[in-house]
Design a binder for these strands. Sequence first.
RNA 1: GCCCCCAUCGUCUAGAGGCCUAGGACACAUCCCUUUCACGGAUGCGGCACGGGUUCGAAUCCCGUUGGGGGUACCA
Length: 476
Amino acid sequence: MSVRVRIAPSPTGNLHIGTARTALFNWLFARHHGGQFILRIEDTDLERSKPEYVENILSGLKWLGLDWDEGPFFQTDRMALYQSGIQKLIDKGLVYRSYETAEELEAMRELQKAQKIAPRYDNRHRHLTKEEEERFIAEGRQAVLRFKIDDEREIKWQDMVRGEVVWQGKDLGGDMVIARASGQPLYNFVVVMDDIDMKITHVIRGEDHIGNTPKQILLYEALGAAVPQFGHTPLILNQAGAKLSKRDGATSVDDYRAMGYLPEAFNNYMLLLGWSPPDTRELYRLEEVIPLFDSDRINKAGARFDRDKLNWINSQYLHSMATDALLELVFPLWQKAGYVTETDRSDPWLLAVLELIKTSLTLLQDAVTISGYLFQDIPDYTEEAKSVLANDKVSLFLQQMIAILSDCQDLDEAQAKAAIEQMIKDQGVKKGVVMKPLRCALTGDVHGPDLMTSLVLLHQKNKAIPRLNYVLNGFK
RNA sequence: GCCCCCAUCGUCUAGAGGCCUAGGACACAUCCCUUUCACGGAUGCGGCACGGGUUCGAAUCCCGUUGGGGGUACCA
């Protein structure tokens, strides 16, 4: 039987990192086994589901390159299916109508809490007499549908990640509601109906679902369907070691996209959070892990999300990226910063700029901040740079540089270097004595990318001489 | 409270009883490269939660303790 897995996000928020990693694992599992990866939108919670979140989830998965083979399916389109399932369970006598009010259930739980026993539904309406039921109806009560759970049952499964997991029926919280009075079916039931209908063979999901699994297994049995394989992945934790929540700042894939992470890098990082390759290599593109990926190397313990490591991976991808491909990504950012316009797109000078700053990048956005001095007419001079330029001898170097540059419009790096070496020799000073003020005058800062290349690039755009003059004229 | 899951450097992890004097990566520190900042390279720092077993031998198996996490809905 061919492998069929799914990712089933709920559109109650933007694509969450945890969902994205579950999607990644499912996608890899499907690709590894030559199976199908299905996308299903779990929008049965009418109050919290929003169309814009559906959009966000779809675009996020696409951005990551996690293409799906079937779907997206929407649960709200499949109500007829759920109705038939409910009818089936009614016919089998496995569900019953339950008439408690919210207040009654609340009171029940309060009492249980006071008695220090586990809060659970006490199955009080499981065996209602006809008279009792009629009385509730006469009172105008609405009934939910509850699925009977046998307290004596022991449920066990062989988890793909954790091995054997055993659950006692009595710990499942009593008979479970599978549909509201309105007829709206609820999560645990709907998931099972869909997974049966979509012939899902392996359910790989977060550990937070582990307690749902025994309930769902019972539903599979009740519906006379084969139980799929389950695998519960560890959770992604925040810095404090707790489940990632909205309060932890950046938790959606979108946030990371906006911050300047590459999808390849983000995938690579998520992969390493909870899965480990068979050797010590850390950098993998998706296609490369397909042959390697399987559930047996998924870790059991939760993993903290570590920005330092993500940053390092992102920088590795950025540094090794082809410069023209990188330009495609950086150009819009430069445009936004006002550094370039559409007509500059094919300017080879831009490639040279990227070539220069590439190894300094951690985030895509760094390409804007780091390259700013090359695009401005006159850079912003830092206080530190100004104090370097305050030295008397500086003007001599700057004037000599102007002379060299004026003589040679298409100066190259070797020539520039030779000229400076000559200058150093003539003056009998150390290299830094010349380089430092020159850097400050040309770039406005004491630090930055290679000075020779910067000089050439600036001169090509006729920005070098004006800057030197600007400094010589007392920053005017 | 109850149930479930988990436990190796600060973080992510390798480790399936002897290959472990516990390996790799990030971070951190130092050095090299270098006009600077980065990049790159080298070195270093740093860990098997604890207590009992089992075994000739345990990071690895078992039990307990502790710690952490998840769940406990007419949410998903």
